[in-house]
């Protein structure tokens, strides 16, 4: 069944993109509603997962452009992730702090760059798969991933420098 097979994937991409748990639940529901409506148009020769992720990506970016989530704060990193992240005792606190900064910095990225960073670095998809989902050339995807990572790295660098000053 579609819900059993894809709900986790869709919920996680919605959560990683929006950063807000109740918002991600509503988005997942809306994406599934869109899926049921679009299902008769699906070409069975195509890859269903890529098609579904394209549908989800389009909906998430459209919603983002309409509502501008960047104004709303992302959930506290500790709320949902910390319980599932196992850290060793050494450097554990610092690493968690940095993860928190990276999680919050995702909101500073534009919707298109945030989406490719989520697909590549969080979900570990291949560049070719991302190009298919985003409907863009491979070179554009690689350059967006690069730009996104550099933006995050600069934010992390600034925060680290501020920590050292204090």
């Amino acid at each position: 069944m579609l819900v059993n097979q894809y709900s986790k994937r869709i919920f996680n991409i919605s959560y990683q993109f929006s950063g807000n748990y109740p918002e991600a639940e509503d988005l997942t529901q809306e994406i599934f509603l869109k899926l049921y409506n679009a299902l008769p148009k699906f070409d069975f020769e195509k890859d269903f997962t890529a098609w579904l992720l394209t549908l989800a990506k389009n909906y998430l970016i459209d919603q983002y452009r309409k509502t501008k989530w960047e104004r709303t704060k992302r959930d506290n990193f500790n709320d949902h992730f910390l319980a599932s992240t196992i850290e060793g005792p050494e450097n554990g606190i610092i690493r968690t702090e940095h993860k928190k900064i990276i999680w919050e910095s995702l909101n500073h990225l534009s919707s298109d760059i945030r989406m490719v960073i989520i697909l590549r670095d969080i979900q570990g998809k291949k560049y070719e798969e991302i190009a298919e989902i985003m409907g863009l050339p491979l070179g554009t995807i690689k350059s967006r991933v690069n730009r996104g990572r550099l933006q995050l790295a600069r934010i992390l660098k600034e925060k680290k420098e501020r920590e050292n000053e204090m």
Binding site: S7, K8, F11, N12, Y15, Q16, E25, T28, H80, F81, S84, T85, R95, H98, K99, I102, W103, I117, D121, I122, G124, R149, L150, L152, A153, L156, K157, K160
Partner: peptide, 18 residues
């Protein structure tokens, strides 16, 4: 920093659906 970001993002766990 890039390396740390790469590692951190890859380590974000998948959440279960309520």
């Amino acid at each position: 920093n890039l390396s740390e970001i790469h590692e951190s993002l890859a380590g974000f766990p998948e959440l279960e659906v309520s």
